[in-house]
Amino acid sequence: MPVISFILLGSVVLLPAAALWALRWAASTGQFRCPDKVALLPFDESEPVGVATDQILGNRR
């Protein structure tokens, strides 16, 4: 059962390790700082905050 052992070991050790690494990476690169700024990432100059998009229904076509 070497393949299964490898998979189980990987699931128990590697995945939690990867999650911890991702958390550490996020903290060290400032991903959790300035949440107000990060929340604005979907917007830009062409589609800024305050402008609704996709308003197409209710108009005669």
């Binding site: 959790f32 949440p35 107000d36 990060v38 929340a39 604005l40 979907p42 917007f43 589609e47 800024p48 905050v49 305050g50 402008v51 609704a52 998009t53 996709d54």
Partner: peptide
């Protein structure tokens, strides 16, 4: 957020 033109209520909560 894109459709209504408003950022999400709380980014901390989303994380």
């Amino acid at each position: 957020p894109k459709v209504i033109g408003r950022p999400i209520h709380s980014y901390y909560l989303s994380v």
